[in-house]
Nucleic acid binder design. Structure first.
Lengths: 139, 139
DNA sequence: GCGGCAAATTAGAATCATTCCTATTTTGAT
DNA sequence: ATCAAAATAGGAATGATTCTAATTTGCCGC
């Protein structure tokens, strides 16, 4: 008599992603982020998912975000020392901060570009992560 | 009877750099940073220049660092949300974090590379600053 | 050389994102 | 159903940085 265990009207989220058990709280964080290109902060995530899950705590949102980041389901983006933001785009890309509007835009690399090709790295260097951040304005 | 007003045995620092008046505190911060490739934090700068200037305050170190950064005499470097670090190297370059030792190394770009060439930026974008950060280990 | 003014400095309080703590709840395996 | 491990909630603690208010300093014209 049971179909699949979670008959929600929203997009179904698997019970596990990249080895991370998708609890209700993690689902809500994940679902919200996947639909956002605005790179929300932890607090913005918190405010939003409280609508669906009023008892959720900010600490849990931080826990969920950390778990999702560690399982490479989302990315954490830091700009200067502002609050961390979270990004569902896993492709290699950079972030452009428009100083005028305060918005953040993903920046792709031109095709065929390998980042490490242009860097003068010491030999035997194993790069695990690259972050490129740009600041400026859309004229 | 007076020769030049500051008869210090160390490298003489001009009274003004890039339009910034070099007070005693700013001089100490500047002198220390110029001799360092370790990208010190504000607190490390503070600890160090207290030797020469015991009455200096941490707030002043922050003020000096901010002034030096704004006048483009040094650069501020952020890695994730760790304490900011400060860098005397004004050439365009990136930063590599060696996870094993915790040290930070400047990374040059290969000659002839123009960063904006490889990025797929929207038209009419004015870039004011680029930051490239790498994390990994020296194998 | 001297009063006045703006800029710089100081010490400590305040801020605020994030982490820690810990009791409670939920989950999955047996 | 039972038990251990994992996850959660809420509140306290942390720590880099910034703010505030009160001195101090440097510099100007007299």
């Amino acid at each position: 008599m049971m179909t699949n265990g979670l008959q929600n009207r929203q997009t179904a989220i698997p019970e596990e992603i990249n080895g991370l058990r998708m609890t209700r709280q993690r689902q809500e964080v994940y679902r919200f982020l996947m639909g956002e290109r605005t790179h929300p902060t932890a607090n913005e995530v918190f405010m939003k998912i409280k609508e669906a899950l009023p008892s959720v705590s900010l600490a849990t949102v931080y826990n969920c975000l950390e778990a999702l980041v560690q399982h490479k389901i989302i990315r954490q983006v830091n700009f200067d020392r502002e609050p961390s933001r979270y990004c569902p785009n896993l492709d290699e890309h950079g972030h452009f901060h428009d100083e005028t509007t305060g918005t953040i835009h993903d920046v792709k690399f031109k095709p065929g570009i390998n980042l490490t090709d242009i860097l003068d790295l010491p030999p035997n260097t194993v790069i695990k992560d690259i972050e490129i951040t740009l600041r400026g304005q859309l004229a």
